[in-house]
Simulated assay, not measured.
Amino acid sequence: MKQTKTPPSGIGCIDDPLRPILGMCGVMQGNEEVILHTHPRAQLAYAKAGVLRVNTADGTWVIPPTQAVWVPGDMEHQVIAVSPAEVHHLFIDQRQFDALPTQCSVLEVSPFLRELIIRAISHGRDYLPDSPAARLMAVIGDELQALEPSSLYLPLAQDRRVVRVMSMLRDNPADSRGLEEWAADVGASGRTLGRLFLRETGLSFGQWRQQLRLQEAVKLLGEGKGVTEVALILGYRSPSAFVAMFRKALGKPPKQYCVDLTSGSGES
């Protein structure tokens, strides 16, 4: 599928202390990409339907409708719609709030916050200070400061041997070779490669590969593929093994997740 490149909206560059949160919404087509960019305001991107992927220099995040991605101000990032997505954005002046995240992360979105985001965007970007809209934005700020990160994060690395393994696994997540086999392929010992993975990503090799497969699973489910097909694509010996991994990581089975992907519901 041909990739469509889109420039950023520019809203994240608006300097307006009287309006600490600015909202916008729009539709992204499948494989549409907002090109690499930065802006002073932090950004919360929430796909009411569809799946997003956000890339930074530190890693990759996949965002289904039950979650949102937080991008701190001035962090270079790229947003890609893995599948057609209805996206709601909040652009936040971090100077106005004390405890917002300082690193890019995927955050769980409660039904309450989801409704707040939708309501905030309905007020537009020209609300008056000390108005009902301004008070709503203050409540959103309180909610954002209390959000918990989710597990859909894939850290990247700098060491050339680790990067090579990551690249090959991203091309073929079903590759089931063990650490020793990968180490021989990149000119290292298994112990060395394992230590490098842990040092550079904070995850063991096995944990990193599972995170990759989890991200790919969310992407493939968002594209409409069935659970058995996804399990086979990702190299699982049986659909039940894939379902068990998915449920343990994300708290619900893939079929329920598929329902949420199309409905935008965070409830199981």
Rank of each mutant, 00 (worst) to 15 (best):
D98C: 12
F112W: 05
P72E: 03
L169K: 08
P64T: 10
I92A: 09
E86Q: 13
P155M: 03
F91T: 00
L154A: 06
Q103C: 04
Q158E: 14
D142M: 15
G124L: 06
F97T: 00
E86W: 12
W61N: 03
E143F: 09
L116P: 00
P132V: 02
L113V: 10
V162Y: 02
D142I: 12
A174K: 06
A81M: 03
C104L: 08
P149C: 12
N172V: 10
R161V: 06
E76K: 13
A133M: 05
I63N: 03
M75D: 04
D130Y: 08
V162E: 10
P155I: 05
E86G: 10
P129H: 05
E76Q: 15
F91K: 00
D159N: 15
M168K: 15
E76H: 13
P173Q: 11
C104K: 02
E115D: 12
A120I: 07
L144R: 09
H88V: 01
A157I: 03
A57E: 07
S167W: 14
V165R: 00
D74I: 08
H89C: 09
D159M: 05
S105Y: 02
R161C: 08
V71G: 03
Q158H: 08
R114N: 08
F112Q: 15
P132Y: 10
V87Q: 04
I80T: 15
W61Y: 15
V71N: 11
Q94L: 00
I118N: 00
P72D: 11
L169I: 06
P132W: 09
E86A: 11
S122K: 11
L90W: 01
M166S: 06
L156N: 09
R114Q: 14
S167Q: 13
D74P: 06
A134G: 13
P111R: 00
T56W: 02
E143W: 09
H77L: 07
V62H: 04
P149T: 09
A146H: 14
E148C: 01
G141F: 02
G141D: 13
D142V: 10
G59S: 02
Q67V: 06
I117M: 08
H88F: 08
Q67C: 05
R161W: 02
L100W: 08
E108C: 14
P173N: 13
P149A: 12
R170Q: 15
Q96Y: 04
Q94A: 04
Q103F: 06
V82Y: 04
W61V: 13
V139A: 14
A134D: 12
S167I: 06
L107F: 05
Q94S: 13
H123Y: 10
L107A: 04
V82E: 04
S110K: 07
V87H: 01
L113S: 01
G141A: 15
Y127F: 12
M166H: 13
L156Y: 15
V165E: 02
P173W: 09
Y153C: 10
E86N: 14
A157R: 13
P84L: 09
V79H: 03
A99Y: 02
R161E: 14
L113R: 04
A85Y: 02
A120M: 06
P129E: 11
G124A: 08
S122T: 14
V69G: 02
S167G: 08
A85D: 12
M168D: 14
